Amino acid sequence: MAKYSEQFKLMIVKEYMEGPLGYTLLARKYDIPSKAPIERWVKSYKALGEEGLRKKRCKKVYSVQFKLNVLNFMKQTGASYQDTAIEFQMNNSTLIANWNKIFLTEGIEGLKEKPKGRPPMSGKRKAKSVKQEKAMNREEQLEREIELLRLENAYLKKLKAFQENPEAYLEKHKQRWHSNSRKKDSD
């Protein structure tokens, strides 16, 4: 919530413009610690009307180029934050002061829009589960490879036994084949 309401600001601005009291006396009268806010309100009112006294309801996102244009204008003309804000139809001169401070410390990169809030947790969870899946896939691949090697080994053993003595091999496996087929028929 704003420290001073729109109605309060408008009342003080109108009292300043219509009456004999100056910034300092109005600040004392309404128990405002400094005359600076009243000066800002009056300048904003003169330049932008009642719109200059309103707090913005939604956050306006300014491009990096716009921020640079504002800071360049201020640097080239030597205008104050308040005068620069009025020139660019903004009612928040502290925003420009923040841009200037960030630009001086971080450069152009600091003026870029940054994501707000805490980053989502879902990315970390997915990364862990993907690693587990890869590990499980690797484990499953190795188990499958072992099974294929076992089957190949068994096949080669049977092939070798068949080549050495085909009749003995057929006789041995014929009995097993007949016993398996009887079980299937009885089902």
Results as ranks from 00 to 15, higher is better:
K184T: 06
Y155L: 06
K160E: 05
I102T: 07
K116W: 00
S122I: 11
W41R: 05
P20V: 13
K160W: 08
L148Q: 14
N137G: 15
E18Q: 13
K131F: 01
A127F: 10
N91M: 09
K124M: 09
Y23T: 08
N69W: 01
A47G: 02
R150F: 01
G110M: 08
E147W: 04
K157A: 09
L48V: 13
R54Q: 05
P119I: 14
L142Y: 03
T77V: 05
Y4S: 05
Y81W: 08
Y16V: 01
K134P: 00
K56S: 11
K43W: 04
E167S: 08
A154F: 06
S186C: 09
T105F: 02
F8Q: 09
K43E: 08
A168W: 06
A85I: 06
Y169L: 02
K43Q: 13
K29S: 07
N69G: 00
G123I: 10
G19L: 03
K124Q: 11
E140Q: 10
K43L: 10
R176F: 04
F66R: 15
N92T: 12
N165C: 06
K55V: 05
Q82V: 11
K60W: 03
K157R: 15
A2T: 09
R144Q: 12
E50N: 14
K59C: 03
L159K: 15
W99C: 00
L151F: 07
F162T: 11
P120M: 12
M121D: 02
F103Y: 06
Y169H: 07
T105N: 09
N92W: 00
N137T: 15
E147D: 04
R57V: 04
K128W: 04
K124D: 06
Q175F: 03
E139R: 15
F103N: 00
L149E: 12
W99S: 00
P120R: 15
V130C: 04
Y4M: 07
F88K: 11
L68D: 01
S129V: 13
I108M: 12
K9L: 06
E50Y: 08
Q132R: 12
L104G: 03
Y169S: 02
G52F: 00
Y45M: 02
Y16P: 00
E164F: 10
S5E: 10
K29H: 08
F88I: 08
S5M: 13
I38C: 01
T105I: 14
V42P: 00
K126Y: 01
I102W: 00
L48T: 11
G22I: 11
L151P: 04
L68H: 03
Y169T: 02
K160Q: 11
I96S: 01
S5Q: 13
L149G: 13
I96F: 00
L26Q: 09
G22D: 11
Q141M: 12
R40D: 03
E140N: 12
Q132I: 08
R138K: 14
A27C: 04
L48F: 06
N153S: 07
A36L: 06
Y45Q: 03
Q89I: 12
H173Y: 14
K128N: 05
Q163N: 13
K184C: 04
S93V: 08
F103M: 04
Y81H: 12
K59R: 15
N92M: 05
S129Y: 06
L156F: 01
K183I: 10
K9P: 01
F66C: 10
K59W: 02
F8D: 02
L26K: 14
E39D: 10
L21F: 03
A36S: 11
F8M: 12
A127V: 12
N137P: 05
